[in-house]
Amino acid sequence: MWELFILYSSYTLLLLGSFLSLTFGLGLLRFPDFYSRTHAAGVADTLCAALIIFGLSLQSGFNLVTIKLFLILIFLWFTSPTSSFTLASTAYRSGYGIKNNSSKRAE
């Protein structure tokens, strides 16, 4: 009974994670300018990664595999703000998309 519950919650988390990864793809294609797209990428880096990794770790039980999964998650959560910030600040300092928000030309 308990195992079934764990299995189904793992499935739920994985499906939610898949939904969020599709959401991220859609947002990346739909949003009109570069700075808005970074927000869509933020969804994939934070909650989508967390849901998929939680779902996988429920299936593995508690062993070294779980710890490795959590190390991956911690690592993603530590590095993703750094790389998003570096990306956004490089774009800002090179003057991209500041004058008008429509951002037609670049480089």
Binding site: S80, S84, A88
Partner: peptide, 16 residues
């Protein structure tokens, strides 16, 4: 502070 703002989707720190 800056990284927490970036980590919450919907807001990205651009310059400090």
């Amino acid at each position: 502070h800056a990284n927490s703002i970036t980590l919450t989707p919907g807001t990205v720190t651009v310059a400090v």
